[in-house]
Design a protein around this nucleic acid. Structure first.
Length: 426
RNA sequence: GUGGCCGUAGCUCAGUCGGUAGAGUCCAGGAUUGUGAUUCCUGUUGUCGCGGGUUCGAUCCCCGUCGGCCACCCCA
């Protein structure tokens, strides 16, 4: 036997047993987005490496050590997208969607980061990204948050997630604060752990959410972000909070919430859960007013967020809130035994499909004993088995057997079957 | 990238203080030659992750490697 080739580490197959759950989640999300008037956009999963370096930030972990970057046959440096926002901005700019317009967009698909896999974290993982462009006021920030809150409600996740909220201020305010924080920490460099020292160089704001107790103690007297906020950001944050309060969305102000990517400013938020171990962020985003300009476009305000599909699915499974009907993918299973059964089964299914296209019918193929066909009917999850034996075929009848309830099976004519099904299945 | 635990049948796992393996489940057939989910019987399934070392002999001990899980880091 030849040696088996296995999937790349951290890149998982989605097996058929799982896909109904994915379809359920994706379906719910798409329906909600349509209800808010958001349009789908699709981008390639490969981009020029420079796009991510310029947007995410040269010295972030993502760019420094997590990107799948390689040279193509022309010698160009290409990268599998580690996130969607940069591609989306690029595509919008290229497609002329940002010229004096507002856009509300969404996309979904795989992202790639070369990290060590663990629960809720994979090298190929799926996000649903939502981005809005051209709206500077915090009402749109609120809309995005309200939208996610509604989604959790619909999916039954509301009790398991909490909203963390913060504002980073304008890009200027953020930069000023950053300098102040760095100055403060530099004076106390000897008391910082290795991780924090590294962050001091790469992404100083991240020192704020260090898990090290000594570092946290040190931060007690550190400059506060809110003291550096510009008046505009402060007002907008207040407005956002008022809207959330009025809509009854609970949140926790977390001054230490700074987000990892360089392009964020003003509003940042994260939906987190304590049900998934270390990877508890299930949805996160914020405002990135400077990014479009940074990528060569006209200054354009923008806010967006991304949801981690695998994490949401893990959460749905952990909480056992997946509606049972989601897993039921077949309504009828057609069994046939004896002479002419194969033909009769296919023809009966065919007729049902023509007249009642909403029915999900699996026709037994491949022969086998009646017993094994019944087993397969049961395993398929179908509600009814339609049985075709020699006597039924001869008489133009079919036996309908209830696989789930206690109803007695009955043999009726195939002509009556349609009426019977509409009476009993809708 | 760092650390801990773990790789035995398709799946869940037992086991051998070193003498090349077993249970449940699943699948197929039968008891019931046309009735599943409960019962009973019969049967199939393995380079014991891969490579090397020690040994007369390694699934077991040692080293390496690949993979999985969890945590750190980072992030959705």
């Amino acid at each position: 036997m030849a040696k088996k080739i296995q999937a790349i580490r951290g890149m998982n197959d989605l097996l058929p047993a799982q896909s109904p759950v994915w379809q359920y989640l994706e379906g719910s999300v798409k329906e909600m987005l349509a209800g808010y008037g958001y349009d789908e956009i699709r981008m390639p999963i490969l981009e020029q490496t420079a796009l991510f370096k310029r947007s995410i930030g040269e010295v972030t972990d993502i760019v420094e050590k997590e990107m799948y970057t390689f040279e193509d046959r022309n010698g160009d440096s290409l990268t599998l997208r580690p996130e969607g926002t940069a591609s989306c901005v690029r595509a919008c700019e290229e497609g002329g969607l940002l010229y004096n317009q507002t856009q509300r967009l969404w996309y979904t698909g795989p992202m790639f980061r070369h990290e060590r896999p663990q629960k809720g974290r994979y090298r190929q993982f799926y996000q649903v990204g939502v981005e809005t462009f051209g709206i500077a006021t915090p009402d749109i920030d609120a809309e995005l948050i309200l939208m996610t809150a509604r989604l959790w409600q619909q999916l039954g996740l509301s009790d398991a997630v909490t909203l963390q909220l913060n504002t980073l201020g304008s890009n200027q305010a953020r930069a000023d604060y950053r300098d102040a924080l760095v100055a403060y920490l530099k004076e106390r460099e000897d008391k910082l752990d290795d991780d924090s020292l590294r962050r001091l160089e790469t992404n100083p704001l991240r020192v704020l959410d260090s898990k090290n107790p000594e570092t946290q103690a040190l931060l007690q007297d550190a400059p506060e972000l809110h003291d550096y906020l510009d008046a505009e950001s402060r007002e907008e944050f207040d407005t956002l909070r008022k809207i959330l309060d009025a809509a009854g969305v609970k949140y926790e102000i977390n001054q230490r919430l700074v987000r990892g990517l360089d392009y964020y400013c003003k509003t940042v938020f994260e939906w987190v859960t304590d049900k998934l171990g270390a990877q508890g962020t299930v949805c996160a985003g914020g405002r990135y007013d400077g990014l479009v300009e940074q990528l060569g476009g006209k200054p354009t305000p923008a806010v967006g967020f991304a949801m981690g599909v695998e994490r949401l699915i893990l959460l749905l499974e952990t909480l056992e809130v997946i509606p049972p009907e989601v897993m039921q993918t077949i309504d009828l299973y057609v069994c046939g035994v004896g002479a002419g059964a194969d033909l009769a089964g296919l023809l009966l299914s065919d007729r049902l499909r023509s007249e009642q296209p909403w029915l999900r019918i699996q026709t037994h193929c491949g022969g086998g004993s009646f017993k094994s066909q019944m087993k397969k009917a049961d395993k398929s999850g179908a509600v009814y088995a339609l049985l075709l034996g020699e006597s039924e075929i001869e008489a133009g009848q079919v036996t309908v057997k209830d696989l789930r309830g206690g109803t007695e099976q009955q043999t009726i004519s195939q002509d009556e079957l349609l009426g019977w099904l509409t009476d009993n299945m809708s």
